[in-house]
């Protein structure tokens, strides 16, 4: 990297810090930016700068939201603000990107709650480190009838789902877990035994 002029070397070094970007890719991106129009590069730099200044965490669901400079207690995300969403349902996910994945399916019209992690005995992460207390407050205060637990099908995800079920059931809330099984276009022959077993467990009448 020492062969590059200093500004170019600096950009390559910064780009290398991004996930999945090695030195070669970083150099290719840097050379691409060098060839681009000045205003396009300025736009990119401005977008990166605005990302940290304008993005925050939703005060209700703890998903991603745009920061509202008029409010000191943080903004609400678009989903929480949307009056058309079904307010009696809350889908619980581990992280904001999981919320985006569920949104892409266009099947779910309720609200979300982002836990910001999972319970993990082997990593020493307990329920108090997650946004579970806030979920219980939210559920207790509003007219929520169903909580859909959409944590990942891992040991940690299952531990979190079991804990939520135990904490929510005494409140008289219906707690459901998303189904697991075969992907669309999949092939039984090439499906692993655990997934196939879960698919049989979760079979339904047609």
């Amino acid at each position: 990297m020492s062969n590059y002029p200093a500004p170019l070397a600096r950009l390559i070094r910064e780009l290398c810090k991004l996930p999945g970007i090695g030195e070669k890719t970083a150099a290719r991106l840097a050379f691409h930016m060098l060839k681009e129009k000045a205003e396009d590069v300025q736009e990119l730099a401005e977008s990166i700068g605005r990302l940290k200044r304008e993005m925050g965490i939703c005060r209700t669901c703890f998903g991603l939201s745009e920061i509202d400079p008029r409010r000191s207690d943080g903004a609400e995300c678009r989903v929480c603000q949307d009056p058309r969403r079904e307010r009696e349902k809350i889908c619980v996910v581990e992280k904001p990107s999981d919320m985006m994945a569920v949104e892409k399916s266009q099947e779910y019209k309720g609200l979300y709650h982002v836990l910001q992690g999972t319970i993990s005995p082997l990593d020493g992460i307990g329920p108090e480190a997650l946004r579970i207390k806030e979920l219980l407050e939210r559920v207790g205060g509003a007219g929520v009838r169903e909580v859909i637990v959409a944590t990942n099908p891992t040991v940690e995800g299952e531990a979190t789902a079991l804990y939520l079920s135990k904490a929510l059931k005494p409140l008289g809330i219906k707690v459901t877990r998303i189904a697991r099984g075969l992907p669309m276009g999949g092939d039984l022959e090439y499906t692993d035994a655990v997934t196939l077993g879960k698919a049989f467990e979760g079979r339904r009448e047609i």
């Binding site: 005995p121 040991v155 299952e158 531990a159 079991l162 804990y163 135990k166 655990v194 077993g197």
Partner: peptide, 14 residues
């Protein structure tokens, strides 16, 4: 083998 019954309760997971 996946010890799947271990993930059916918090007590077993712990």
């Amino acid at each position: 083998r996946f010890f799947k019954q271990l993930t059916t309760s918090l007590e077993k997971i712990a």
